[in-house]
Amino acid sequence: MAQKENKTNPNGSVDSRTTLLEVTDLKMHFPIRKGFLRRVVGHVKAVDGVSFSIQKGDTFGLVGESGCGKTTTGRCVMRLLDPTDGQIVYYDREEGPIHIESLEPTEMRVFRRDMQIMFQDPYASLNPRLTLRQIVGEPLIINKVASGKELDDRVAELLRSVGLSPEYMNRYPHAFSGGQRQRIGLARALALNPEFIVADEPVSALDVSVQAQVLNLIKDLQEEFGLTYLFIAHNMSVIKHSCDHVAVMYVGRIVEVAETKELFRNPLHPYTEALLSAIPNPDPRQRKSRIILEGDVPNPARPPSGCYFHPRCAYAKEICSQESPPLQEYAPGHSAACHFAKELSLTGVL
């Protein structure tokens, strides 16, 4: 079984935990077609060379603004999209490293028992014509894990584990609120005892008081079932609260990766600094002037030259518009893609 020692954790000591998922140079380019012959006239580079690895038992956060490619990355990892290029290696508990990107559909189906996804929109991700028993039980039936009485018992157990009463089993999704629907989505994801769950904006559609309930539940289930999460979100406070490590994405690329606290305390990339500065602070006594970025996120079909962030970056110099900076490690476990990561002293929020 191929296992990789994690290099070092932020304290500098060797971490005994193992890598569960390793993504290398992942690319997802969507063709733009035009005209009668639907000729390809260009590509939207939604994900353009993303690399990261997730340790077993960790919650790995992907954060960025809309259109930065975080959801596309999550979907490529699940093979809901077929990536254009790159490697996605999953270190299976029994079978060792598996190259997800080259699995045949039939193999992938077996493999999806280990990896599940929960979606952002609780109103669109549950089939309104199916009862909870059918929704939560579907993965069990498809994989021939359970049937009949056993199936009912398992569905009841799953509903209980996400805090719903098993009596609801015969109801349809319309009878439930947003928070309850996210719980149903979680129960469905848990049905086959996965090791790894992609949580794509699990709380962004929820009210504040319900958001807290679902975040706690996600955390509790991680402890109970030893889950590893890829946690996709745009809310920095939620990321700070839930994740062990964070990767910040901008126009299809990762611009910075670090352990959560380190990233919030010592950002190395100017975009991370601006993102952190933009977080509204729920304390009126701490109003401060923010870094206001000029303009908008560029169109991923026509990204700027050099570093994609340079037209909005306050620290940009000549080289930034010419050369694209590679993602480099500047401190143990802390990497950034900026030509001046060493020289700049940026402000964090902690």
Partner: peptide
């Protein structure tokens, strides 16, 4: 008070449990 307690804050220690308001609106 409950609303204020239920929001995640940057200054919180990582991954503490959030105080929740039971039930829903």
């Amino acid at each position: 008070r409950a609303l204020l307690r239920s929001i995640p804050r940057l200054t919180d220690e990582n991954q503490t449990r959030l105080d929740v308001i039971k039930g829903r609106v």
